[in-house]
Nucleic acid binder design. Sequence first.
DNA 1: CATGAATGAGTTTTCATTCAT
DNA 2: GATGAATGAAAACTCATTCAT
Lengths: 187, 187, 187, 187
Amino acid sequence: MSKKQDIMTATLDLIHEEGLQSVTFSKLFKRASVGSGTIYNYFANKEELVNEVYRESRTKMGEYLLQGYDANASLYERFKCLQLNRLRFGMHFPKRFLFIDSYSFSPYIDPVLRNQDDDYQSSQIVQELIVDGQRQGIIKEMDAHLCHQLIHGIISSILKGFFVNKYPLNEVQIQQMIEASWKAILV
Amino acid sequence: MSKKQDIMTATLDLIHEEGLQSVTFSKLFKRASVGSGTIYNYFANKEELVNEVYRESRTKMGEYLLQGYDANASLYERFKCLQLNRLRFGMHFPKRFLFIDSYSFSPYIDPVLRNQDDDYQSSQIVQELIVDGQRQGIIKEMDAHLCHQLIHGIISSILKGFFVNKYPLNEVQIQQMIEASWKAILV
Amino acid sequence: MSKKQDIMTATLDLIHEEGLQSVTFSKLFKRASVGSGTIYNYFANKEELVNEVYRESRTKMGEYLLQGYDANASLYERFKCLQLNRLRFGMHFPKRFLFIDSYSFSPYIDPVLRNQDDDYQSSQIVQELIVDGQRQGIIKEMDAHLCHQLIHGIISSILKGFFVNKYPLNEVQIQQMIEASWKAILV
Amino acid sequence: MSKKQDIMTATLDLIHEEGLQSVTFSKLFKRASVGSGTIYNYFANKEELVNEVYRESRTKMGEYLLQGYDANASLYERFKCLQLNRLRFGMHFPKRFLFIDSYSFSPYIDPVLRNQDDDYQSSQIVQELIVDGQRQGIIKEMDAHLCHQLIHGIISSILKGFFVNKYPLNEVQIQQMIEASWKAILV
DNA sequence: CATGAATGAGTTTTCATTCAT
DNA sequence: GATGAATGAAAACTCATTCAT
């Protein structure tokens, strides 16, 4: 199991450093300190490896997104928790976040994986939150998927600017972004 | 000039269909109906070709973003114009929009191009708009780059959801998104 | 066309010298004095190349087998012509003969090729000769395919012994083998 | 001993099904239900394994060929016995027969094995039979090796046609072939 | 003895690039 | 300018063999 993890970690690192299109197997073997044939014990080919890394990343993110989520908290508290989790996931695991963000719609990733269950649960919860807020008259009436994409997109975008050092992202800015995204969807 | 355009168009199409990493020259030649040597009359190598397509796309977007922009209009009118232009550019030129969005930070694209003048101007204008709004007490005090990224990111995100058919994007939804992004940054 | 022929000739030579299982592409490229990528301009992969060489060999043999065949000659004359042609083809083109003989039933060769038309014509003529001889009461009654295989097999076997220097094959021996195969099938 | 036999049987089966050049160790291990290292307890390498299977096949054939051979029987009886044995061996052990027939002159098989004692004895006996028949004026004067190859080749060829279902091989046909091969070598 | 994960040398295959026409 | 056959360096992949358990 360790060798497999070594390979997947090296893959994620290299994708982050040089982009998918320049990840070659020889770079991978050197980075993972693994013999060239070893990879084929675990993955049929490069595409399968990359997809496996993608799946793993999505699973990890799915778990992270629901950390400390309290279904009984107030609407805003629940919203804030989900948004903060997403932001913090990105800040703690920039490689995974960027990989997911960049390749989710790439033809290289099996479309089936895009809709996998792993973070489907958190997706469902966001969706429910929106509908709930709309029923309460707090959140503006609009397509729930559109609303979801909106608040999700704000976080993603902010993170990408942060990663290229456009601005710092301290507690002040974080708080501002949570509020901005909240205000964006209020009635 | 026609051959060169054929090649660039084929390049953009193939990147859109299969992703940069699987665009090979032989696919390109077939798609562009061009001999394999022809490309070297116009581009020194593949990287230069891709960067050229990137530059062209950025230029086209830069022009589009300022369509109908009236520096004397009200703050909201100016904001709305810029946001709408960005959204409409994405809807009219999805391949170009996605190419720019996906590869702007790819190591394949010359970093110099990222900061090119073509849409730098529109960037400047957004920036000025924000500062102006903050001076007037309309827009919330925050890092102008952060604010810029925020409103830009909402549009990008909404477009990507639209491209994968998560929801329709009619005038109603468009209006909602302009308003949402406006509310997000108000004091 | 020349490069393609160079490759096919080198392939046949190497199969003859070292056997199919040790024909590698690098040996092939050196032998054919061709760049490593060149082969893929003509053949999708090794299997296709080998099958092409097989097809070509069968075609050449098919032509050779009917040289000087006179449909109006006597039964024995016609028999002798066909047997001699087969024997002489083997002696003149040992590589082609042995390749056909060794790999006709190999899983490497597309079964469709085994039954190709190229030497089907000569096959038909042998078959007709046998039936004709049986009708005339000269050739013994037996399954025509069995009879065909019998006289064909004698030649093949004799040739293989000759190739490994078990015995010489001069006009005397050749005449003996023609007669032996003739006697074998008489009533 | 059982594991060793499992491996050798699997080897023969795979050679028969896919040809020597596509027998890989991983296929072998799966087929023989054996761990990949196990083979090296019995064989130094792949070549040795294949040669061992070849040797075993030749030994089995050598024994089979002399079944019921009576050195005191008439010339024709002895001839018939040897030819029938060869034919029956092929019909009972097609994989072994074809393996021997196909790879006897392959560079993969140690040339020493080709001339091994196991069926050398039967070879000697055929040879003596021919010389004896020639001395008696029954068998035509010709190179004894040539004659040997002739009668051997008829059987081999007939068998190969049978294996690909060109014709049935019942007692009638078998009797015809014995007679044909006998007539072929008579004065 | 038996196993199978790990290895890396060797093989196949791809593909950007060159160059003669 | 335009072409596409030819190239070979680099990439992907295979597979016999080793070795720790």
